[in-house]
């Protein structure tokens, strides 16, 4: 089975559409959304509706901190994120709010665990930014593969037979065999707001048959999204960030 794993869409309709179009062409059997469907971006309604439709059609989805903040105003956030959330919240209708609030924090599929942030205490939104930070996730579960987002910078970390945790370099587009003697955490890059100096939308494809993971990038119309952000009166920093990919 081939899974397309998308995360941190953040209300970016253009990026989300471009990734879904790319997924269409790559013989994917099932879509996984690792949360943060809304927040930051100018099209939270469209993205939430699209995500709900995908889930209805069989996609797996988990809740991110921004999705949570729509219904939970006590969620702590940075200044820009909070301003964008104040803009997002009133735009969500009842159905969208219910959909986002109803998403589980984790989901499992065989020996794979999906979570928005760190697997240890998923609701605490810990950033998995290093091999050290990944340790907690390996400890709390027995899943062989863990997929998370939240960081907006893709990473691949393994946990070996002798207990060593290693972060690995990888190349975009090259399939990496997730050899079974190790457990793996893949931090999938962001669809709607990449922060690794590339503005292209990020996602990943896991082939459970060949046991290979491919990180992918998809170009999309960044300038349209940036213009929408400015027109909507959202913080200008969010538009600049998209263009620069940081």
């Amino acid at each position: 089975m081939r899974l397309a794993i998308l995360t941190d869409i953040h209300g970016n309709r253009e990026a989300f559409s471009a990734v879904l179009a790319d997924v269409e062409r790559r013989a994917v059997d099932r879509i996984v959304l690792l949360g943060d469907i809304v927040g930051y971006g100018p099209d939270p309604e469209w993205c939430a509706d699209k995500a709900a439709a995908l889930v209805k059609a069989g996609a797996i989805a988990v809740r991110g901190n921004h999705d949570n903040a729509v219904g939970d105003s006590s969620e702590t956030m940075g200044k820009v994120a909070a301003a964008a959330m104040d803009w997002t919240r009133p735009r969500m209708n009842e159905a969208q709010r219910t959909f986002l609030a109803g998403l589980p924090l984790t989901q499992e599929l065989g020996d794979i665990l999906f979570v928005h942030a760190s697997a240890n205490d998923p609701g605490d939104w810990i950033y998995v930014t290093s091999a050290q930070r990944a340790m907690g996730s390996f400890r709390v579960c027995t899943s062989r593969l863990i997929f998370c987002g939240h960081v907006h910078v893709p990473a691949l970390i393994s946990y070996g037979l002798t207990g060593q945790v290693q972060e690995h370099e990888f190349r975009i587009g090259a399939a990496v065999p997730l050899i079974r003697s190790r457990r793996w955490i893949a931090v999938v890059g962001s669809v709607g707001q990449p922060r690794d100096r590339s503005p292209e939308a990020a996602y990943a494809i896991l082939d459970t048959g060949t046991n290979e993971l491919t990180f992918r990038r998809v170009a999309y119309d960044v300038s349209t999204t940036a213009a929408k952000i400015r027109a909507a009166g959202l913080p200008d920093a969010l538009a600049i960030r998209l263009v620069k990919g940081e």
Partner: peptide, 11 residues
């Protein structure tokens, strides 16, 4: 392998 993680390098 140029396109695969080098399991030996860091270890």
């Amino acid at each position: 392998h140029d396109e695969l993680p080098d399991l030996l390098s860091e270890e």
